[in-house]
């Protein structure tokens, strides 16, 4: 464990909690892409299948349980509890355009052709594109509430910090995980456009982020 990875995990946890609290307190999921949240729950489910078979550390196990619980709670709030506030008419990204290539690639490019490895690889590739429906929804509505942009900021920051963690681990342990690194770089690049808008608009105290 290093400070970059710890900061990354904390940033990830903060992002998930920001979103969950926003939906719970406003009793509404307007402007939130349910599809992205389902994809994130799928990412955690396929990545943490070793939760009961491999024990790494208390921290590792606790964080996996927390991420799984919070992501499913978020999906529950969107599609069950506050489903009447869900903007399905704006959440129209075709997720099959994400799932098909990701499934194909995880069969082609993986460390071992075993169910657990292929599912882990699937979760890594899927995570890189899981935010697409949410970013698409924002471009479609042309705006995002500031709390949603803070959620996206911490979500984008988490994988950027993981990239620093991978550089650090390569430098100190000569460890590198190419699938995770390539996918993590792609994932962070997808956030760059949002980061630009976030720093130039939201942090100027503009409240809502309205797209040009």
């Amino acid at each position: 464990m290093n400070v970059f990875r710890l900061a990354g995990d904390v940033s990830h946890l903060v992002a998930i909690i920001i979103l969950l609290l926003k939906i719970w307190r406003s009793k509404s999921c307007a402007g939130i892409s349910g599809k992205s949240q389902v994809l994130f729950a799928l990412v955690f489910t396929t990545r943490y299948l070793d939760l009961f078979t491999v024990f790494i550390s208390v921290y590792n196990t606790v964080m996996k349980v927390v991420f799984l619980a919070l992501s499913y709670a978020t999906v529950y709030l969107i599609y069950m509890r506050f489903r009447n506030s869900y903007n399905s008419e704006n959440d129209t990204f075709r997720v099959e355009f994400l799932l098909v290539p990701v499934i194909g690639l995880s069969f082609l490019e993986n460390y071992a052709f075993t169910p657990l490895e292929i599912l882990w690889t699937f979760s890594i590739f899927l995570e890189a594109v899981a935010i697409m429906p949410q970013l698409f929804m924002i471009t479609k509505t042309g705006e995002a509430e500031s709390i949603t942009t803070h959620y996206l900021f911490f979500l984008g920051l988490y994988r950027a910090l993981y990239i620093a963690n991978w550089v650090w681990r390569y430098h100190t342990e000569s460890f590198y995980d190419l699938i995770a690194i390539v996918s993590g770089v792609v994932q962070t690049i997808f956030f760059c456009d949002f980061f630009y808008l976030y720093f130039t608009r939201v942090l100027r105290g503009r409240g809502k982020m309205t797209l040009p």
Binding site: R5, V54, I56, S57, F67, Y111, Y162, A180
Partner: peptide
């Protein structure tokens, strides 16, 4: 092999 290591990352 590297496939063992990555499980320690979330």
């Amino acid at each position: 092999d590297s496939s063992v290591n990555h499980k320690d990352e979330l």
